[in-house]
């Protein structure tokens, strides 16, 4: 389902959770939503899932306002790191309940997934370990087979093998049945290859939105004699820098073309890639904030 937000703003009292966010997410992709704790990820996802109403601005999901909209919410699965089920209820009953509630829910697939995660389905939900609760949420989200599936840091509590199993199951199921998936995380390196596009939000604002591969090529470290680095980075967006004696290393945001690279080589400068995780840290670190805004403009 296509999601469009126009000047989307959400305030809780004096706190601005989302600040005039405008973005268009075409249907049928896996999106990564990256942001620090408290950056507005869950607020944005709650709005998309129809759980909250924006303070101002507009939001449409599949062309309609999602807020308490039965048609939109019926096509949306929203998985958080906690499962909405009563503690005494066995996990098996939670799957059964989801199947009764959602016409798209695939109960056989849910049982298959539960087996792969080693979930004890006879056990009460309250007695499951933290990792098992997360796995139950993931099973409910995948088996819902909804046009829009949202995983809001659903992996919290899962150990590494379970997380990698989740990523593999998600990709396999997406290949078999393409749909819109949004996955919020800060474990970027683990999942980056799964995302077609990445959104980075910081303090309720969108600071980057692009194809994952494009973002990967967006950051460059420029290292060399301070004066030469200064000359090269003049007029560019500098996200961060380090100095060691006469050597300066600057992290620059923005793609370099062949002429830029040749000029850097002539000036005796070393150019290095910046991983997505590092780029994320630079884009959302407080010191880089004013300049990161500039980068987005």
């Amino acid at each position: 389902m296509r999601i469009t937000a126009d000047n989307l703003t959400l305030r809780y009292g004096d706190t601005v959770a989302l600040d005039a966010l405008t973005v268009d997410l075409p249907a049928g992709s896996i999106y990564g939503l990256l942001g620090r704790n408290g950056s507005g990820k869950t607020s944005l996802l709650s709005l998309i899932a129809g759980h909250r109403r924006p303070t101002s601005g507009t939001l449409t999901v599949g062309g309609a306002d999602p807020f308490e909209n039965a048609a939109v919410m019926g096509g949306t699965a929203f998985v958080r790191d906690v499962v909405d089920a009563t503690d005494a209820e066995p996990a098996r009953a939670a799957l059964r309940f989801a199947a009764d509630l959602r016409p798209t829910f695939d109960l056989d697939y849910a049982h298959d997934l539960a087996g792969q995660f080693g979930l004890p389905l006879g056990k009460g939900v309250g007695g499951l370990s933290r990792g098992q609760k997360s796995a139950l949420g993931v099973v409910l989200g995948l088996a819902a087979r909804t046009p829009l599936t949202i995983f809001d840091e659903a992996y919290l509590g899962m150990d590494a093998p379970s997380r990698y199993l989740f990523y593999r199951l998600l990709l396999d199921d997406y290949v078999a049945d393409p749909r819109t998936v949004i996955l919020s995380t800060h474990l970027i390196e683990e999942v980056a290859n799964l995302f077609e596009k990445v959104l980075v939000i910081d303090r309720g604002r969108l600071v980057a939105y692009d194809e994952t591969d494009e973002l990967r090529g967006r950051g460059v470290t420029v290292t060399g004699p301070a004066a030469a680095v200064d000359a090269f980075v003049a007029g560019r967006t500098v996200l961060g820098e380090q100095r060691l004696g006469g050597t300066r290393a600057a992290t620059v945001y923005g793609r370099l073309d062949a002429a830029d690279r040749a000029r850097a080589a002539d000036a005796g400068l070393d150019l290095g890639p910046v991983g997505l995780q590092d780029l994320f840290v630079h884009l959302t670190g407080s010191a880089a904030e004013p300049r990161a805004q500039e980068a987005h403009r």
Partner: peptide, 8 residues
């Protein structure tokens, strides 16, 4: 096989 996005 390589666990990457099909669009990529």
């Amino acid at each position: 096989f390589f666990q990457i996005n099909p669009a990529t």
